[in-house]
Design a protein around this nucleic acid. Structure first.
Length: 274
DNA sequence: AGACGTACCTGACCGC
DNA sequence: TGCGGTCAGGTACGTC
């Protein structure tokens, strides 16, 4: 599921519900997700007040008094309210009770998600976070910087943009959409993009992500906003999952094609993306 | 070091 | 109806 816009949407929903609240009970209904839960997770989170919630790349960071709770949603993770009268469902792996009576479930059928806990001081040394590249919205990210950074990358631009150590937060959908908007073929080597192309691509990446955040993300199968609403950016896809359709670009007679690039489905218009 | 393939897990969907 | 194959928004890790 979740790329930067979906994680941002979830963070905002969680923040509205959780900031200022205290976790009264935390229940783990299995010993692990993708990895084992961190040691003493229940003890370290229980009775702690939630100060703030932030997103870093595709990670949710929940700041408590002493620890930061890191959550990655993997492919199918989501948070949803759980009514007290209902028993948790099959894939409700973590149950959070708050001091105002609200109850949330972390639900993740495929269990590619994971959680970690780290002290405030050690946040920057966390093995998951320390490898991450810059945020696409970061002010220090410029076309010049990206042009230079990617000039040594001998992989298709599609693959390179998915690499979280280069730029963090993009996933399969928004890479396809950004490249279409920029008329750049996903097969092009990252090192072959000119500065002028980066001057088009970077603003377009930001444009696509912003529009998706404003739409509450994309709901294909699993993504839900924390309030249960679907995201609706999937109705605005230009290419993703659109193989066989006519290219929407004005004056383009091309047909959207699906190729596999580094084992991921890649949608683009061979006519206008060069 | 950098690039690539595969593993992890469940569910939905398709063709037979 | 049921079965097997394929695919899905992500990341880590082994191998070359």
């Amino acid at each position: 599921m979740p790329e930067l816009p979906e994680v941002e949407t979830v963070c905002r929903g969680l923040a509205a519900m959780m900031v200022g609240r205290t976790i009264t009970h935390l229940t783990l209904r299995r010993p692990n997700l993708r990895y084992p839960f961190p040691p003493l997770m229940v003890e370290r989170l229980s009775l702690q007040r939630i100060d703030r919630i932030e997103r870093r790349a595709k990670y949710i960071q929940i700041y408590l008094s002493e620890y930061v709770w890191l959550i990655h949603l993997g492919m199918s993770g989501r948070f949803q309210p759980l009514l007290h009268v209902l028993a948790p469902s099959t894939h409700d792996h973590v149950i959070i009770d708050l001091d105002d009576g609200q109850r949330l479930a972390y639900h993740d059928p495929r269990r590619f998600g994971f959680m970690d806990l780290c002290s405030l001081k050690e946040l920057h040394f966390n093995p998951h976070l320390k490898k991450l590249g810059l945020e696409p919205f970061d002010a220090e990210v410029t076309p010049e910087l990206l042009c230079q950074k990617f000039s040594r990358v001998n992989r298709p631009i599609k693959t390179a943009l998915l690499d979280q150590t280069l730029v963090a937060g993009l996933g399969n959908i928004y890479v396809c959409e950004s490249l279409w908007l920029s008329q750049i073929s996903p097969h092009r080597l990252a090192s072959s993009l000119s500065l002028n192309e980066w001057k088009v691509l970077l603003p377009n990446i930001r444009e696509v992500l912003t529009r998706a955040i404003n739409a509450g993300g994309s709901s294909l199968k699993d993504h839900r906003q924390v309030n249960g609403h679907l995201g609706y950016f999937q109705h605005q896809f230009s290419v993703y999952d659109g193989q066989g359709r006519a290219c929407q670009r004005e004056g383009c007679q091309g047909t959207i094609t699906k190729d596999v690039i580094s084992n991921r489905s890649t949608y683009y218009c061979p006519q206008c993306q060069r």
